[in-house]
Nucleic acid binder design. Structure first.
Lengths: 152, 152
DNA sequence: CTTCATGCAAAACATTTGCAGCTGG
DNA sequence: CCAGCTGCAAATGTTTTGCATGAAG
């Protein structure tokens, strides 16, 4: 049993995203609302297909295209973070849509988002050494999660 | 004009990789040798397709499959680093096959590899907070390179 | 010689696109 | 009402796979 976050946190996320959607004059369809809700509720970085399956449970005629288009919309509004992997699998984080470090299990694919200190320092150092002007970053650590360590 | 690395550095990489290929009893075909050489010579993180085009110039009958199989082989031997992106494009680094930070231009796609300090500290902090046992990481900063900043 | 690698084409996947019809505001 | 969204299916782009032929050791 995973301890559920208080509902009001989810609701806060949902209404923040809805506000932004309206603010940009995008339409609020039932499918979009469902996808937004799924992303705001999930703590486990779902894939596009997982989102698709969940929406289907509510709106059986929904197509993958709509899921991808909605995700694209949310990316544009900076309200979802896309985590793409070399094997083609994408995972989405609708709760922390800004760059942050991930701990990713290479066996069960579980992703954790601990808060850690001063990635900004590194960014500053990179900027000085390269002359680039950075707008975002990606920091992932790969290995075995505690459960998978026990099993191996 | 980019200053060419001394040829012996490339040769060092090539023979290190060749040694490892032989050591693991994999065959040394002309195609593999060509791909290894391309990776060792390149300073610019080529894509699979770019490697394919280069090999084709030398061995016109070479297939993409061979390129991918050879890359897979080199990944297995830890002699190439694969950088996958959400859009499906992959880039390869045959010179620094261990995790290291990248500065990636979001416009022209140029990649730089500056050496920066203490990513290990972050790794340690992540380990303490998550209980994961990490084996590698990925750290990329995205933004505009100096040239693209001027143009914009 | 024998096994492994190659090359071709087809398959596999995730994502995108074109378009007719539907619907939110 | 009508611009924008949906759903379907076909297209896309990249990587993988099956299998007959060829070459490394």
């Amino acid at each position: 049993m995973k301890p559920k976050e208080p509902a009001n946190l989810t609701e806060e996320r949902v209404s923040r995203i809805l506000a932004k959607v309206r603010e940009h004059d995008f339409r609020l369809t039932p499918q979009r609302l469902a996808i937004i809700r799924i992303l705001a509720e999930s703590k486990d970085h779902p894939s596009a297909d997982e989102i698709y399956q969940e929406v289907r449970a509510l709106f059986p005629t929904t197509s993958v295209a709509t899921v991808y288009k909605t995700i694209a919309l949310l990316k544009e509004l900076n309200e979802v973070l896309e985590l793409g992997f070399p094997d083609g699998s994408n995972r989405y984080d609708g709760n922390r849509p800004y760059p942050h470090p991930h701990a990713i299990c290479t066996k069960c694919r579980k992703i954790m988002d601990p808060k850690i200190s001063n990635v900004e320092e590194l960014s500053e150092e990179m900027k000085k050494k390269t002359g680039y002007r950075f707008s975002f970053h990606r920091l992932d650590f790969f290995g075995l999660c505690p459960e998978c360590q026990k099993k191996s």
